[in-house]
């Protein structure tokens, strides 16, 4: 259990998808104008990342790798298969959410389809492969990465709502300022690097 918590904390804070690796930047900058929409997108990302990561792990391990059921190395098909899984999962999640909770569907609105081309989702799956996580670890990594994205987008949306009342030079207003704030947030998150999640998870010092 401890190692899962370790990976969750690492993915959410120390190796934050947005602030340390710059993944998911497009939607992060485009949808962070108000906290409400940022909240919706953040939830959707946690959801999709938490679902696609284990599915892609199963596909990678049992279908694509050399020890899988086909017995040949199919890893060159990885990109196409992963992106197809992500696109179809997003479609599926969209239909389920629409049936089960119309209120949540209305709140998420256009953001669900947008998630297909969110680099954080595919990036998460590719990191999972290159770091050779097992099933439990990839679930923890997916949820942690989604939570990290959620935190980052809520934080910048709140800052951007406030900064509208500040006296920013006209040429820097909006986009330019968003970049600089993200840079500062990245440096702030770097101070979490000294934390050792393994020590926290084991309850020791």
């Amino acid at each position: 259990m401890g190692e899962f918590i370790n990976i969750f904390i690492r993915a959410a804070f120390i190796e934050n998808m947005v602030l340390a690796y710059f993944l998911g930047m497009c939607s992060y900058l485009a949808v962070s104008k108000t906290v409400n929409t940022a909240f919706g997108l953040g939830l959707a990302v946690i959801f999709v990342l938490g679902i696609t990561m284990p599915i892609n792990w199963v596909i990678q391990t049992f279908l694509l790798s050399e020890s899988g059921i086909f017995g040949i190395d199919l890893t060159f098909l990885r990109f196409i298969i992963f992106i197809a899984v992500i696109a179809s999962m997003v479609q599926l999640v969209e239909m389920v959410v629409e049936k089960v909770s119309p209120a949540l569907y209305a709140a998420l609105g256009i953001f669900l389809p947008l998630i297909t081309v969110n680099c954080a989702i595919l990036g998460g799956s590719l990191f999972m492969v290159s770091r050779e996580y097992n099933f439990g670890e990839s679930v923890a990594f997916g949820l942690g990465g989604g939570f990290g994205f959620f935190l980052a987008i809520i934080a910048i949306a709140a800052i951007r709502e406030k900064i509208r009342y500040s006296n920013v030079p006209p040429a820097l207003r909006g986009l330019g300022m968003a970049f600089i704030i993200t840079g500062l947030m990245g440096i702030a998150f770097m101070s979490l690097m000294g934390i050792d999640p393994a020590a926290l998870a084991s309850g020791g010092n």
Partner: peptide
């Protein structure tokens, strides 16, 4: 060398371009 520097530089490039 930090990743954050890329954000600052692009922010400043946007500033220059829009000026």
């Amino acid at each position: 060398v930090l990743p954050a520097a890329a954000m600052f530089i692009i922010g400043i490039l946007i500033w220059i371009q829009r000026s």
